[in-house]
């Protein structure tokens, strides 16, 4: 009797363990979906984009200044330069405005006001990029054309719209890293007689530095990868820009503009554009991971 009871009990346990095993493996499978996706995406982008570097030459593509895909000239230097200028321009300004807004939200704003501003920032983050693009096509481009000339479709229009788009990213991350600074720092500084502003700029911001920088780098990723807003306002001229009012074409708009038209070498060249963009993004990602790890250690 006892024996029988034990046996059924063991059986039950075994069954449980079997189920446990199946469940764990299934969950592992789910968890590896992310890895598999990254691998497949990388493999396919590189597989489709690399051959052209062999056929047309690495230098001719990355340092070539002429983009005439139907005539076999695949220089994407103008797009690389335009992408870098728009990204840096937008992020430099957005970093300043964003950090100040984060300080405002974390330290200065009265609680009631912060309750209004924060949802506003969240809404800013949620608005689809194509709405930003449409807005600046209708409002910004004519404004620039009217006051500064040159048609309005320009690097400047792209920079302005990108500022609005990366602001929420920077604000959110900067604010939470400011909040993560231990309150003893602040209290200590205030107790020593420093003013609130001094405490913010000399104690809290330096303490939250890694997090803030990570937010800025994340913003760079968003800016360089933005497509639909930029394509509508930048003019899409594949030429190295010499002023902020010049038309230009970014890496992303190059792909979106011509992808559906392209075939053969032209298509491969667009994938090559994707490869270059992908490499930029990977570098930024690695930087972010590194910075966040540092921020984690700091606090």
């Amino acid at each position: 009797m006892l024996n029988k009871h034990c046996k059924s009990r063991i059986k039950k346990l075994r069954l449980n363990r079997f189920w446990e095993y199946i469940a764990e493996r299934t969950l592992l499978l789910c968890a590896s979906a992310a890895i598999v996706s990254v691998l497949i995406i990388s493999v396919y982008i590189f597989y489709s984009g690399l051959p052209i570097f062999g056929k047309a030459g690495f230098r001719e593509i990355v340092f070539g200044t002429e983009w005439k895909p139907l005539e076999g000239q695949f220089g994407i230097l103008p797009m690389i330069i335009a992408s870098i200028i728009t990204t840096l321009g937008a992020v430099a300004l957005a970093a300043f405005i964003g950090l100040m807004t984060a300080v405002f939200l974390a330290e200065i704003a009265p609680a009631g006001l912060a309750k209004i501003v924060r949802p506003a920032v969240e809404l800013l983050a949620g608005i689809p990029s194509v709405v930003y693009g449409f807005f600046s096509l209708i409002v910004l481009v004519p404004l620039i054309d009217k006051y500064l000339g040159g048609g309005g479709n320009s690097l400047l229009a792209a920079v302005i719209i990108l500022i609005m788009m990366v602001l929420p990213t920077i604000i959110n991350i900067a604010e939470s890293s400011l909040r993560a600074v231990p309150s003893e720092y602040k209290e200590g500084s205030l107790a020593l007689g420093a003013s609130q502003i001094q405490t913010i700029f000399k104690v809290q911001i330096p303490a939250a530095k890694s997090g803030i920088i990570a937010g800025i780098v994340l913003g760079m990723g968003r800016a360089i990868g933005e497509t639909m807003a930029v394509i509508l306002v930048i003019g899409n001229t594949p030429q190295i820009p010499t002023s902020l009012l010049d038309r230009a074409r970014t890496l992303t708009s190059n792909i979106a503009l011509e992808m559906s038209y392209a075939e053969g070498l032209h298509q491969e060249a667009l994938f090559a554009t994707g490869v270059v963009l992908f490499i930029f993004i990977m570098l930024l990602n690695i930087a972010v991971t590194f910075l966040f790890r540092k921020a984690g250690e700091g606090s």
Binding site: A31, A34, I41, G221, L270
Partner: peptide
């Protein structure tokens, strides 16, 4: 896995589009 998730989060949508288009 964490690195893969971060990477996925950082890839711009146009690259997803490109990938979806080929794959």
């Amino acid at each position: 896995i964490r690195f893969a998730t971060e990477t996925l989060a950082g890839i711009p949508s146009i690259i997803y589009g490109l990938f979806g288009f080929i794959f």
